[in-house]
């Protein structure tokens, strides 16, 4: 088990290295650098001005050197003013080093956001906290709801309850966030007027029922159907097992068979699925936060990507890749832990 986890951690590190390199390459494409330079200087900058800005701020250095600097295995060099020969920080708004030093992701320095004009960490930490709350409430609604639907549907396979719940689950998997968001806003905000159509106030004044219900509901619906269907399949399979028949024949009531014998075994498979839902939720977070104007991780990612804010975008990519990989690892380890028949070699 320990060696399995160590090997997985090694692969994770390699994956992270590869992916950040790809992201680094894509954000440093020529059109993207020009876009950044134009937004940082002014709209009517000439080609020569753009070029000199890029050279001055080190964007024209060797690609791998810059990646190493971002990573923290190469020294970050201060920008030297060609006229005075003095070391000046690249961006006024960040506390950048005036002498060469190792200051990359490994050292905990995520760089400088050119869009928000603050160090990346200062922007990203509150955003992650905000999204953490959103995720927490989504999980709180989605997981128990999906498990209940799945258990009720799978308990008596082929019954009327099963069929109607199954169709409902299928319908929910066919409703992406931008569709359910629109429909829910129309119903609950425009027609009934009981909920806020925007979660912008949640950032400033705190989370309340009226401003947070719509984003949570919108996100929960899309993932719910999938987990419910997995739970149903797992439950239906367990209900046909020999030991369930034995328990029934012993004269136990249906409810106690379901609760004491079937549930524990039926919930192993959905656990994996729930864990693997996190990467999907990341996309959902981006859509929902853009739709309901909630300033969290997704909102930050969209801002970073549309302004080609290199350091912020790299940090966002790193966070999301870590989330994906850690949940994959947890789902594998957890599955082996819950299911004694699986032995990890």
């Amino acid at each position: 088990m320990i060696s399995f986890i160590i090997r997985r951690l090694g692969i994770m590190a390699l994956t992270m290295l590869c992916l950040t390199l790809v992201v680094f390459f894509l954000v440093n494409l020529e059109p993207n650098l020009r876009k950044l330079s134009i937004s940082q200087t002014n709209m009517r900058a000439t080609d020569a001005q753009i070029e000199s800005w890029l050279v001055k701020n080190g964007y024209r250095d060797n690609f791998f050197v810059r990646y190493g600097q971002w990573l923290g295995v190469m020294q970050k060099q201060p920008a030297i003013d060609p006229e005075t020969g003095e070391a000046t920080p690249r961006f006024r708004f960040c506390d950048e080093p005036a002498e060469a030093r190792f200051s990359g992701v490994i050292q905990g320095d995520f760089g400088c956001s050119t869009r928000f004009k603050v160090p990346v960490a200062e922007r990203l930490v509150p955003a992650l906290q905000a999204t953490g709350w959103l995720m927490f409430y989504v999980m709180l609604v989605m997981v128990p709801g999906a498990l209940l639907v799945g258990i009720f549907a799978g308990m008596r396979e082929g019954s009327r309850t099963d069929r109607s719940l199954s169709v409902a689950s299928i319908a929910s998997t066919a409703t992406p966030e931008y569709v359910s968001g629109v429909i829910f806003t129309v119903i609950f905000a425009s027609w009934l007027g009981i909920l806020n159509g925007s979660a912008a106030t949640a950032t400033r004044e705190g989370i309340t029922f009226t401003n947070f219900t719509l984003p949570v509901m919108t996100m929960a619906i899309y993932g719910m159907g999938y987990i419910a269907r997995m739970t149903r399949a797992s439950m239906a399979e367990v209900m046909t097992a020999q030991y369930i028949r034995t328990a029934r024949l012993k004269g136990l009531t249906f409810s106690s068979v379901v609760i004491k014998h079937a549930l524990r075994n039926a919930l192993i498979a959905p656990f994996t699925v729930i864990m693997l839902q996190f990467p999907w939720l990341l996309t959902g977070v981006v859509i929902v936060e853009a739709m309901f104007r909630y300033q969290g991780f997704g909102f930050t990612l969209v801002e970073a990507a549309s302004n080609n804010d290199i350091d912020l975008l790299l940090a966002c990519a790193l966070v999301s890749v870590v989330v994906v990989l850690v949940t994959q690892l947890l789902s594998d380890v957890g599955y082996a832990f819950l299911n004694p028949r699986i032995r990890v070699s």
Binding site: L301, V321, V324
Partner: peptide, 9 residues
């Protein structure tokens, strides 16, 4: 590697 990329990013 591709699957670890969030689709939106």
């Amino acid at each position: 590697l591709v699957l670890a990329f969030p689709v939106i990013l």
